[in-house]
Design a protein around this nucleic acid. Structure first.
Lengths: 333, 333
DNA sequence: GCGTACGATTGAATCGTTTCAAACGATAGG
DNA sequence: CCTATCGTTTGAAACGATTCAATCGTACGC
């Protein structure tokens, strides 16, 4: 049914080797022959079989990327950055979404390894680090994304989440707030716990300041709204005067509940700061203060580290970017 | 270097055929043998080579999906719907982003065909329909997504964009608006031109109503902001009293420019309605009226049609969903 | 004790591409 | 006229999993 190099070779009266050379090293073939083979390809509608190619090559032309949540624009940006950089090298990115579920993460790791990916970029869950170690040991380069690796273990690209959490909380404190709510989860996710750790550090420096944690099941708009319902239902005296949301999706949900349901004024009644500075933060009901991370750059850099590791040159490296405070109306006095 | 079935066979003192059977038809192998092979696999760290598998099988376990813009949450939802449905069938979705560029679209089509995908889901550009026809002719099932196909040509899943445009414009007219601005582009994109067509139809039914078109280069937040700058800079007498944005990203950008730069009140000075009803629409600076489309369902249904076509059973079918008006503050009087 | 039937196992053939050592043919130099 | 050289072309081997017809061994019936 399908047309193979063999058919093309016959049609152009050359050997299969020549057809392959036309495809991969046209400079090694006489121009007239190239012409003849090309028109045979055109005529027969020949399409290279990538599986055979890969089998021969022993490795694919793609790299795997496993993220925690594709619905979060932050990860979409990371993916875009990675894709752009990979495309420059003629590589394809296979995108997997773990949804912070270790079974799904494991499934993607298996899939990608069977596909013999060039390498793996992953925002890992703690439970599966051993598996990653094994993977790397079997020869697949691994780069951790949005998560700092221990020196000597993996290469990684991350943004300092402790510093980001600190920035966010300090900003709220500088605005005179003292009763801070932290909304985020699951707390088992490193990004979340680090941001909380940073916030705690800032709060500890200020006398009379306190932080209360509102854990969520996932960092989504819906969970943010749920947390907001709880907050707005409290008596004013019991209510925090500022909220630090672990990401902008949560902050968006919080906004909805606090304003539309609770009829609270932001920032007068309660200040709010998010994390990631996604596109929508600037155009929320109340423009949202946030902590900006260089998402696309994270993706690009991850691919760079991966290629370096794959080529054998260059040792493992842990790159850490610094987050940045973006002030908007939701925290202005 | 890498471990093959041959190595496993040797380690377990069986033939390669038996190893393969353990992997694919364990019921055909004696339990004790299964056990032995499995522990050899474990011990050697054997990982199946998917390329070899595919080569033999002649087809991959994945389907290709090409969308216009991954940064648009609408398409993210479509992709999620498709992935969920595909996963149930043990299939993987390869995601490609054409960015409304026909060269990139063509590149993905080539890539996916070389990968011998099970089938292709695509939001096509007009220029490349002939190529799709050839692809289908060579044996790859194709389903158009978010675009209605001509009966007899392709299967397709779409939402009636003309109806959606009509709904949006009629809603603005019912709110008493008469000078409608349509912001969207490129106008060569079918979704955009259909929505405009529907809007024109609604406007034509109302005496004294007019529509003015503000074309954009792409349907992004940034372009929306640019269009908003133009609108807000106009003298009040020259300014439209309502805007219909071709999608919610544009609407988001418009909001930013109209409110933050133009100091205009929405909807008092100018009403605004978007399209897609993405998550953020409800939590925009002014909660955004929009036209809702069943995005995830679109993706699921597309996979269903694809599988049906691939199995040979069932003819080509054009499914059309109806869009739905969602009223929020941005158009309330 | 012999033949049969059945479950388990074998291993050569196959998928389609790429590689590379060898063969080929034409040209130039001695 | 022979040989060396250079640019082209050749075709068999290899990649690794799967398939399937053939073989093996055992248990059972007669």
């Amino acid at each position: 049914m399908t047309v193979s190099v063999r058919d093309v070779a016959a049609a152009a009266s050359v050997s299969v080797g020549t057809v392959s050379n036309v495809l991969n090293h046209p400079d090694k073939v006489a121009p007239a022959t190239v012409e003849r083979v090309l028109s045979a390809i055109e005529e027969l509608g020949f399409v290279r079989n990538d599986a055979a190619r890969q089998l021969r090559a022993g490795i694919s032309r793609s790299i795997g990327l496993v993220v925690l949540d594709v619905r979060n624009p932050f990860f979409t940006e990371v993916a875009r950055g990675a894709e752009d950089r990979a495309a420059e090298e003629g590589l394809t990115v296979l995108l997997g979404n773990s949804g912070a579920d270790s079974a799904r993460e494991a499934a993607y790791l298996d899939l990608f390894e069977e596909r013999r990916v060039h390498g793996l970029l992953i925002t890992p869950l703690d439970e599966e680090l051993a598996r990653l170690e094994r993977l790397r040991h079997r020869g697949t380069p691994v780069v951790l994304v949005d998560r700092q690796a221990l020196p000597g273990s993996f290469s990684s690209v991350a943004v300092d989440d402790v510093a980001g959490g600190f920035l966010a909380a300090r900003h709220l404190l500088e605005r005179g707030r003292r009763r801070i709510a932290f909304v985020g989860g699951p707390l088992g996710i490193r990004q979340v716990s680090d941001r909380l750790k940073g916030a705690r550090r800032a709060v500890a420096k200020v006398a009379g300041a306190a932080i209360e944690v509102f854990p969520t099941e996932s960092p989504t708009v819906l969970e943010g709204r749920t947390a907001g319902e709880v907050l707005q239902a409290r008596a004013p005296a019991e209510r925090p005067d500022a909220v630090f949301a672990a990401n902008d999706l949560l902050a968006t949900g919080l906004l909805q509940a606090l304003i539309l349901r609770g009829k609270l004024r932001i920032p007068e009644d309660i200040a709010l700061i998010g994390y990631d500075d996604i596109d929508f933060a600037a155009s929320a009901i109340v423009p949202l203060s946030s902590i900006r991370q260089p998402a696309a750059l994270l993706g690009q850099t991850a691919v760079d580290l991966l290629l370096r590791e794959a080529s054998g040159r260059g040792a493992k490296e842990q790159v850490v970017f610094r987050p940045e405070l973006v002030e908007r109306a939701s925290t202005q006095a």
